[in-house]
């Protein structure tokens, strides 16, 4: 691996808005982070927190109703937010690739696995069909699919959910990208399969020195594979920290709430601590801290003023309680 601190993807003050009948609806309010080479960043948030929109925006795959209204997404110095379509096409799937939540829906049901895998290769690389075919078989084996030659001739319906996700991973890794964006890649899978897929992603990521952005709503899932964790709430980063530190000592009340609401498998509890209330509706953010209405520690200041991100020892926390610490 090269220098660990070499930034590969830099997101600066990224803002995303949806156009609705009632006007513009901001869903991401200035997200910033830096993804270094060989690191795995987990972006954790509930539905509606803007995590998927953010993932889609990296490759400009946003639905037509949404657009990037400000900020930059820098990949090796190029701003993906303003890049021409032709330039972007060279990056998509090639330098930055993506896997999605529902593997069965992400594959084309009327094309064989082989046709879909070679399509990616032929689109970006000058190679013969035979070579592409051989490479595809190699990739399938790499993601743990036995009997690759035969499987290449099969259709997605002949694969289980976990196997489809392996195919998606093979496809995403076909061109040895620098960055893998994984949007809830294991949410639709069984726990045992989930464990296998997580391990596979981690292993392949280590082997190739690739970086990854891993989007999920379940903190426990990323505990094993993330180097850094960014917690999103109502379109804002609430806390960002190295994974081990975040799990050992979550600083933001929201992160604390998220962690404690996970049902533990190691012990029996009578009642699960919950975060009271609901996340704010986009466009109707509270005046102060967006988490204040649900926060057990909220003060008047929290309800009046938006907290900035406070830094301490390389961690960032958007909470007035961390001011001056």
């Amino acid at each position: 691996m090269t220098q660990p601190d070499e930034p590969i993807l830099e997101v600066r003050d990224l803002k995303i808005e949806f156009s609705t009948e009632e006007g513009l609806l901001p869903v991401l309010h200035g997200l910033s982070y830096t993804l270094s080479k060989g690191r795995v960043l987990a972006v954790v948030g509930e539905s509606g927190s803007g995590k998927t929109v953010h993932a889609l925006s990296i490759l400009r795959l946003l639905p037509p109703t949404a657009h990037i209204s400000g900020g930059e997404i820098r990949y090796k110095g190029k701003n993906l937010a303003t890049l021409s379509r032709a330039e972007l096409r060279k990056i998509r799937g090639n330098k930055i690739s993506m896997i999605f939540q529902d593997p069965a829906a992400s594959l084309n049901p009327v094309l064989t696995i082989g046709e879909q895998l070679t399509e990616t290769l032929l689109a970006h690389r000058k190679m013969s069909k035979e070579a592409a075919r051989a490479r595809a078989a190699e990739l399938l084996e790499k993601v743990g699919i036995a009997d690759a030659e035969k499987r290449l001739r099969e259709y997605p319906f002949q694969f289980s959910g976990g196997m489809c996700q392996r195919v998606m991973i093979a496809m995403a890794l076909a061109l040895e990208p620098d960055v893998l964006v994984a949007d809830e890649p294991t949410t639709a899978l069984d726990v045992t399969v989930q464990a296998q897929i997580l391990k596979l992603i981690k292993q392949l990521q280590r082997q190739s020195g690739m970086s990854a952005v891993f989007i999920t709503h379940n903190l426990a899932v990323v505990a094993g594979i993330a180097d850094d964790v960014l917690v999103l709430y109502a379109g804002q980063c609430m806390e960002q920290a190295p994974a081990a530190e975040l799990f050992a000592r979550p600083l933001h009340p929201y992160t604390q709430g998220l962690l404690s609401s996970l049902a533990p498998v190691h012990e029996k509890v009578d009642i699960l601590p919950v975060i009271k209330g609901h996340p704010p509706v986009p466009g109707q953010l509270p005046k102060g801290c967006s988490f204040a209405p649900r926060c057990p520690y909220a003060t008047d200041k929290c309800r009046q003023e938006r907290p900035p991100l406070f830094e301490e020892n390389g961690r960032f926390t958007r909470c007035w309680l961390r001011e001056g610490k």
């Binding site: 726990v191 505990a223 094993g224 994974a243 081990a244 962690l259 498998v265 190691h266």
Partner: peptide, 9 residues
């Protein structure tokens, strides 16, 4: 998956 296993697969 469990947060207890943080840092470990």
């Amino acid at each position: 998956p469990s947060v207890r296993a943080a840092g470990l697969v």
